[in-house]
Simulated scan of single mutants.
Amino acid sequence: MITRSQSGIAKPIDRLSLNTFSIYPILKNLSHALQDPHRRNAIYDEYNVLVKNGTCLLLPRPVGVNMVRSMWLFKHKFHTNGNLSRYKARLVGNGSSQQLDVDFDKTFSPVVKLATIRMVLCLAMSRKWPLHQLDVKSAFLNGDLSKTVYMHQPPGFVDSRYPHHVCLLQRSLYGLKQAPRGCPSTRMSTSGYCVFLGDNLLSWSAKHQHTLSRSSAEAKYCGVVNVFAETTWLCILLRELHSPLLIATRVYCDNVRVLHVPSRYQYADIFTKGLPLALFEDF
């Protein structure tokens, strides 16, 4: 066997530099973070955004109300090439101290489905729509709360004139169980109208949720059922985007033969749909 060294072939060794001394470590202590100019600027930037949004209203503590605590979290934000972008600080509420039907009722996560983004981008590419991105800083914090939430004053920002006052939250805060529905929508402008990737599409799962009952014997068909559910979602999404499918979507499977079941045999529909009178009486 002939090696590279025997043949006089030399290849330089690229050694990775893992030196991170230029990046300050992530801190957990607020007093230490305030001594760091990078962290201190990030903290005041976050606090100024909360003040500008009117997130908190200071008032004397009412008697017998549930109080939520808050804390500061710190993190690093990096560019795609791995270089440090900026230091971030975030004030979060302790949602575990909230009480159901007292300071929150329903939880809602305003997250766009990845399939929604892909579908809209596919439409934009095929129809040559111009795309515009709207990036709202701390967009989540612009939502209103439907329940009254009382919180202790943020650590490090206790008003010296009213040290015993508490915050009445008028806007959402990270960490709370009650997430808002009113945050700004991400939008895509088209030549004739705008497609909003926000509440209208996000609430589809609550308005048009299809219940699929699965017994243990049907567990092996879950993959096909998931395909049907996702396909149904995409079909409704396309219809809402004024781009309905004109033909049925064909689903292939290697070990299941899927047959059409007529409406007169869909007995579960009586619990989930508004049926014609004859079909309803027959069921």
Rank of each mutant, 00 (worst) to 15 (best):
M1G: 13
S7L: 08
G8C: 02
R15T: 12
L16R: 10
N19L: 04
T20Y: 02
F21K: 13
F21V: 11
I23Y: 10
P25R: 08
P25M: 05
K28R: 11
K28C: 09
N29K: 09
L34G: 03
Q35S: 15
P37L: 08
N41K: 07
I43A: 02
E46K: 03
L50D: 07
V51L: 13
V51S: 00
G54W: 05
L59P: 03
S70K: 02
S70I: 01
H76A: 09
H76Q: 14
F78S: 12
H79R: 11
G82A: 10
G82L: 06
K88G: 06
A89S: 14
L91D: 01
G93H: 03
S97H: 04
S97R: 06
V102E: 03
F104Y: 15
D105Q: 13
D105C: 14
K106R: 08
F108E: 02
T116C: 00
M119V: 12
L121P: 00
P130M: 10
V136W: 12
S138R: 00
L141V: 11
N142F: 00
V149A: 01
Q153G: 04
P154Y: 05
G156T: 07
R161I: 06
P163V: 11
H165V: 04
V166A: 09
Q170D: 04
R171M: 00
L173T: 01
G175Y: 02
P180L: 02
P184R: 02
P184T: 01
R187G: 01
T190P: 09
V195I: 15
W204T: 04
W204K: 01
W204R: 02
R214M: 14
S215T: 13
A217R: 02
E218Q: 15
K220Y: 15
C222Y: 08
A229T: 08
T231P: 08
T231A: 15
C235A: 10
H242G: 06
H260G: 05
H260A: 02
Y265P: 04
A268I: 06
I270S: 09
F271Y: 10
L277S: 05
E281Y: 07
